[in-house]
Amino acid sequence: MSIGQTFLGLLESSPRHGYDLKRAYDERFGRSRPLHFGQVYATLSRLLKNGLVEVDGVEPGGGPERKRYAITDAGVTDVSRWLAQPEKPEPYLQSTLYAKVVLALMTGRPAADLLDSQRAEHLRLMRELTRRKVDGDLAEQLICDHALFHLEADLRWLELTAARLDDLAKEVTA
């Protein structure tokens, strides 16, 4: 996730201090991984340098942390462009799992067991996410669902691969 554009988006609704920005970000998007202050100020200075934000005012008392930042017109344009542009779907063409399966088959190890234990691991995580989801609010639910759908996709791949192991073994060992 692009922290810079997310900051710009947060600043567009109202100017904020650096500390407020971090708190807003963590609350909405960073539940599992809060930002470091270092990351916050590095990003803000980059945005400042590129003319996307400006210092709106300085609270008395000095120090970098007391600056209030506001978005510039160029910044608004940048946010619009970012939101309008679809994310590139990740193709996942380089899969560790696939490599493991092929290697297991090539070395005569039980590939089915590998798939099964991976599947159990996936489901374990899905259960945990489901539990969080059931107890959480809407934001939590959406975030968990996003992960769940991805994990489910992996699981489907595992199922399909398991069903085709015999064919794959033939190709790999041929």
Binding site: D116, T130, L151
Partner: peptide
């Protein structure tokens, strides 16, 4: 559906009429 199965405590997989009790 894995997402439905995720509401369970554990799962049993059936393949070709045989069970694999992973847990």
């Amino acid at each position: 559906e894995a997402r439905v199965a995720a509401y369970s405590d554990r799962e049993v997989v059936v393949r070709d009429g045989r069970t694999r009790d992973l847990a």
